[in-house]
Design a protein around this nucleic acid. Sequence first.
DNA 1: AATGAATGAGTCTTCATTCAT
DNA 2: AATGAATGAAGACTCATTCAT
Lengths: 203, 203, 203, 203
Amino acid sequence: MEPRERRIQLLEHAARLFGDRGYYNTSISDIVSSADVARGTFYLYFPNKRKIFEELVDSLLLRLTSCIETVEVDGDARSPKDQLVDNLVRVFVLLCEERHMLSILLRGAVGLDQEIDDKLQDFYREILEAIESSLVLGQQMRLVRNVNARMTALAVLGAVKETLHGLLNTEYSLESEHEIRQHAVNIIDIFSVGVLLDGVTIP
Amino acid sequence: MEPRERRIQLLEHAARLFGDRGYYNTSISDIVSSADVARGTFYLYFPNKRKIFEELVDSLLLRLTSCIETVEVDGDARSPKDQLVDNLVRVFVLLCEERHMLSILLRGAVGLDQEIDDKLQDFYREILEAIESSLVLGQQMRLVRNVNARMTALAVLGAVKETLHGLLNTEYSLESEHEIRQHAVNIIDIFSVGVLLDGVTIP
Amino acid sequence: MEPRERRIQLLEHAARLFGDRGYYNTSISDIVSSADVARGTFYLYFPNKRKIFEELVDSLLLRLTSCIETVEVDGDARSPKDQLVDNLVRVFVLLCEERHMLSILLRGAVGLDQEIDDKLQDFYREILEAIESSLVLGQQMRLVRNVNARMTALAVLGAVKETLHGLLNTEYSLESEHEIRQHAVNIIDIFSVGVLLDGVTIP
Amino acid sequence: MEPRERRIQLLEHAARLFGDRGYYNTSISDIVSSADVARGTFYLYFPNKRKIFEELVDSLLLRLTSCIETVEVDGDARSPKDQLVDNLVRVFVLLCEERHMLSILLRGAVGLDQEIDDKLQDFYREILEAIESSLVLGQQMRLVRNVNARMTALAVLGAVKETLHGLLNTEYSLESEHEIRQHAVNIIDIFSVGVLLDGVTIP
DNA sequence: AATGAATGAGTCTTCATTCAT
DNA sequence: AATGAATGAAGACTCATTCAT
């Protein structure tokens, strides 16, 4: 088999196993027997277990990052809300295809490897900062209420992560892009409008 | 040492180590040398590594559950919003004292042990169902907008988890109860009102 | 078994195996099955294979060094020649009891471990320097011919090593101390007088 | 490349690596990547790792043997001493060009391979026997003192080996044949005359 | 004549668990 | 109630060798 193919094959089998059983419950033996190659073959392509895991995480973060585009507030582009929805849809679509690595992405890699954990932390920090600065900008433009931007950013990120987890890991099987878009709209909607009917207030 | 004391001592050392390094990077050796007892002593109190971890998780879930009280909508009690805030404050206060187990609580125990992971899943499912049915009730009472209740419940849970993570694991050091209450109010506020100023809409 | 005893037992078995088969043809499996303990037991006493080998070499070099005493030329001590013989006898006696490590001592540990090889090199360098400076001193005292001291020191060391090898590793079984002393006298004699009869010269 | 050339190329790279790092720290990978050929190519020329090493040893022993000529005591040849020196010079010159294999030659191959070790042993035994019988002959001719011939042969061999080691492996860089001859003369001289000035005896 | 992907037996090392004292 | 020496199954990783192309 072509080296390129074999590499990809190993990555795919490893992703599924790491995603299903976690890093420590996946042995090199599991990976190679799943991919139906000899033990030594693994080491032709990856120097060790940690590295194949790292490569999976790196690759996912890279593709995720490239999914997310800065929202343009310029005149004739799509509306900011639509752009947000588009971003979220792209993320959802990508993760639908990469369900295996999802649990690692959502849960971090605490206790697995410091370096990898740091990468995930950095990734989330960047997202948080983007959300936070958008909120601050919105406040300056008198579009956003006077909420604690940092806290709200955390809330938004957490909401997205948990709905992702809920949608992708359980019964739902988001197959049509229409369904996916519907869910993205929902999330954005909750945060942009709030959950209460206009005029209603809890006393 | 009194058996009861020793048991507690071992649990405390284990909690700190599991929280800091994760389950798989904490060995029985680490626990007993941290607690300064002999290897064999550990097995007088716990049948195996899995069980001490399970006990820590069980105990935390138990205390967490007892923190959360059903919101009463009856006449003369505190306002529902205050009751929600009180719940959140109690959860925050408890987790401030149990920071060690926090990462396990927040990230689940995927890849550690199926049974323990199931417990966490059940715990979160119950919380989700409580939030969801509150939302549905609110909708029936015409207090809550026509949002997807399931999705919104996931969003709320995720927001709480992520802010907890952000608040407890990073720079912030929630020491005074006043500060803690402030953060709880913030979260509830975001979800009850939404982040946009009244009347403002993203086109 | 007492830790001290077990440690010694493992060292003895390892010494025999390393001596017989060499470092690379001796596996931890060989050592533990020879000592009839479990695999893990080895690692209670030594952190790895390299370390047990290093300890064996260190210990031998230490005992060898303590065998060798500086020759005193003061008046009423034993004659210098007798002192040299005594040194050699002590070395021979020690190595008779430690035949296993002899091949390692004689051949160096090239290709085994840089640090260990350096120790052996240092050991031999010290011996060489001692011999060389004795020769130079002898020349200053007009006792020793005008030979190249460095070369001669190398020749002496090599002669001792090779005779040791020949005597200890082959048919001969130097059992009585008398025999041992006889051989030591021979070597010293060869170098002190030269191999040729007085007055005879190869043309 | 011509098969003959390729073979030689592989042998040269292997010799350098074996000499520098030792047998066990030299992998087939090292050899083929040093020679810049494919893994499989190695096995077109040598059936296994052991064999290429054996061939290197065999070839060296062969060339060494052919360096050494029986000393003729007949009338009009060069003087016996000069013949000895010539032998030694030829050995030195050869080994200067083959420094890589020197450490293997000097240290034996204990723990590498029984068969190869036996070859080295045989080689040295032959040399020893030649020296020994020369000494015995010398004694019969009343040229050599009444020393233990076996012991003395060992001493001579060891002295030559150690000086070789000292001269070739360290600071000295025997480049001119004149220098080499000088050292050979030194060694022969030490043994033929002894290290002490005429008439001087250690009491 | 050469390639290099694949193999798998073998090695070191870890660690949860047991049990005699 | 406590100890800690011993166990051995299991895992990561290496490398000489094979073979289809």
